[in-house]
Design a protein around this nucleic acid. Structure first.
Lengths: 192, 192
DNA sequence: TCACACCTGTGTCAAAAGTCACAAAATTAG
DNA sequence: CTAATTTTGTGACTTTTGACACAGGTGTGA
């Protein structure tokens, strides 16, 4: 662990909510920088998630096991994005999910208890927390609607159009379960 | 429109976040009560959503049209629950969704601009806003995971086990698109 | 209470996706 | 650089789901 100025993090925070230099300093004062290597776990099933994560560079997949013990990916987080396991974080229960680095990854850790204290001290930080949640919820709703409105081929096309960079960094195997289809079907969709 | 004391609303707010009597009063001071009859629209596609809704009694479905202009239900909200169209509310864009009463329904309206002002005045109200979002996000994540982890029959069984009251109030036709399957398939699943 | 609209169940068939098996290609580790 | 491992592509077959058609049931409003 170390700590260094991060312009990309500062820009990201400012893009989510207007914030003064003072509040920004408070927010990033106690965060920790962490490097994790490809395939290492950021969070394991059963652990308590105590942080909000900001992926500065690299990629994280969030997955769980289904009834057949197959891995099902539920989220991918790449450069300059926030993520967490909200249910575990919020309710202080063991995580049902794993979080694993897809590449060598640099992550800033925002500790839950520190954040809660900061919310009480600064309206700006409180607004930032709420805006971040709003953004995550809108993304999640959009993703959920993909499953109801579109066929598997359309879901793939949607990512192809809206998140082309993601497709370069996620293996077909991992992408398939994220789209709710089998590896073979995705391979055949991609062929055209 | 009228205004009346609502114990169920007060209890709901307190269950989401600890709040003093003073902050609670501020929060409910300007909200409006609205009755809408079965099949009436609470929000129409293209309108700007300007409120967070609390359904005191009754039921609301949120739906949109797919490519074939078929109605796809994306959410149901019944007694004692909050809902809104977050994307429209948050980004001040026209709603992509319709919201319609499934039954004669009583709704409290929380105006967006009033809420934003209150967030700046009271840490407790600000915390309530964040907690409500956290809760909505956890529900949404759980719902999205249903589609990746479970078969249509398992998804129906899940609702049967976790939200039995909902199944009594939603028509099979509406439920089918919510579960991402055809009306006929749901009918056959339900037969056993 | 009667007519009409809407909702639900079901049979038949077609289309889509899953499963299994295995080969080819790509990536990784030593 | 090479062997081992992992990932991807594909064929054959099975299972699941969707689409269409239509009958029977339910509810609603005039």
């Amino acid at each position: 662990m170390e700590k260094t100025f991060s312009l990309s993090l500062e820009n990201k925070i400012r893009s989510i909510a207007a914030i003064s230099q003072e509040s920004l300093s408070m927010l990033v004062q106690e965060i920790q920088l962490m490097h994790i290597s490809k395939n290492e776990m950021l969070l394991t099933e059963g652990q308590f998630c105590k942080h909000v994560y900001f992926v500065e560079k690299g990629g994280i997949r969030t997955f769980m096991h289904n009834n057949d013990m197959k891995e099902i990916n539920v989220n991918f987080t790449f450069d300059n994005s926030f993520t967490t396991e909200l249910k575990s974080l919020r309710t202080s229960t063991p995580s049902a999910f794993f979080m694993q680095a897809l590449e060598d990854t640099t992550v800033w850790l925002f500790e839950k208890d520190v954040l809660l204290a900061l919310y009480a001290q600064s309206h700006e930080i409180s607004n930032f927390g709420r805006s971040l949640l709003e953004q995550l919820l809108m993304e999640q709703e959009e993703h959920a609607n993909m499953f109801k409105l579109q066929t598997p081929a359309e879901r793939y096309q949607y990512l192809y159009d809206h998140q082309p960079a993601m497709l370069q960094r996620i293996s077909l195997t991992h992408l398939a379960s994220y789209l709710g289809i089998s590896r073979e079907t995705l391979s055949r969709i991609r062929r055209h």
